[in-house]
């Protein structure tokens, strides 16, 4: 009996610890934004990872940082709008470069996005004294999440959800087999452009809480974890969204107690989930996720050549 009371008291104390930060309005907002950010990036990340576009996601987040800083400098009140337009322009430019140039697409993307990032750093160093701090833009922060940002994130999450819901078959077809999708009535280029726009808006909306340097990790980790757990596309979408949400939620708590930038803890929680799932699924999980960035593998049967 004594033990039971002790346990329940201990449980109560733990509950108190979990509930305590919720009394702060900034933490409530932070927790909501982090969970939704994780969910959004986990959801979109499935398409990014399966299409072998992880590098584009990484580059895009760095590119948007340049727009973020420039927009703050030239139109402080409208910096989200400015950064959004910059992000969309970067996304479309990257897609175009990746499609058109046969050689050196990676190099071109690397140059464009890192130059944009460097411009952002320079602008921040010289003029960055309004809006989010340099560190929070890079690594995320639970402080200073405005209502506008919250609303923006909700709207973008809704757009992403509706877009995938109503274009599910086309998106699945062009992710699996873009060439055949193209000849089967899917408007691949247009759908691709929409996806890139949603990706750049998602990065922008989650930038303040996760941070420029860590957004790409949250696009990749939940999707890879989900792939290790399932062989079905629809289940992968669901699991990846749940893993993203949990990483955001737990990471935000961890960030509060550890006193470190929110993005770092969210990514570390995601990485821990990856480690646990890897330990549980072992070789099977690794085999499933092995071909994520490849498009086609050679069959072991030798081709029957003309004799």
């Amino acid at each position: 009996m004594k033990l039971a009371i002790h346990v329940s008291m201990k449980g109560f104390a733990e509950m108190e610890t979990l509930i305590e930060p919720l009394s702060f309005a900034f933490f409530q907002k932070g927790l909501f934004v982090a969970s939704l950010s994780g969910a959004l990036l986990g959801f979109i990340g499935v398409f990014i990872v399966l299409r072998g576009m992880s590098y584009i996601g990484h580059g895009l987040s760095h590119s948007i940082f340049g727009g973020f800083a420039a927009a703050q400098l030239f139109a402080a009140q409208f910096y989200l709008l400015g950064a959004g337009l910059w992000g969309i322009a970067s996304a479309l430019a990257i897609t175009s470069v990746a499609k058109k140039s046969r050689v050196g697409a990676d190099a071109a993307i690397g140059v464009i996005t890192t130059a944009s990032f460097a411009l952002g750093v320079a602008l921040f160093a010289k003029f960055g004294n309004s809006g989010p701090s340099f560190e929070s833009a890079l690594f995320g922060s639970i402080l200073g999440i405005s209502v506008t940002q919250m609303v923006g994130l909700i709207v973008i999450s809704a757009i992403a959800g509706l877009f995938v819901f109503f274009r599910y078959r086309s998106l699945l077809f062009m992710t699996f087999d873009p060439d055949v999708a193209d000849v089967s009535g899917v408007r691949v280029n247009r759908t691709d452009a929409y996806l890139m726009i949603i990706l750049s808006l998602s990065i922008l909306a989650t930038l303040t809480v996760i941070g420029v340097t860590l957004v790409a990790a949250m696009l990749v980790i939940p999707a890879v974890v989900a792939r290790m757990l399932t062989d079905s596309f629809s289940k992968m979408l669901l699991i990846s969204t749940i893993v993203g949400t949990l990483s955001g939620l737990i990471g935000m708590y961890a960030s509060y107690y550890a006193g470190v930038p929110s993005g770092t803890m969210i990514v570390l929680v995601g990485a821990a989930v990856f480690g646990i799932v890897l330990a549980i699924t072992g070789g099977r999980g690794l085999r499933r996720s092995a071909g994520l960035d490849s498009h086609g593998e050679t069959l072991v049967v030798a081709p029957i050549a003309a004799r």
């Binding site: 399966l50 992710t175 089967s184 596309f233 992968m236 499933r288 071909g291 994520l292 086609g296």
Partner: peptide
């Protein structure tokens, strides 16, 4: 259109 089997990503999560 039916593509070449070698060009397909067989690890794609799909039934």
């Amino acid at each position: 259109y039916v593509p070449q089997l070698e060009t397909v990503n067989w690890n794609f999560p799909i039934t």
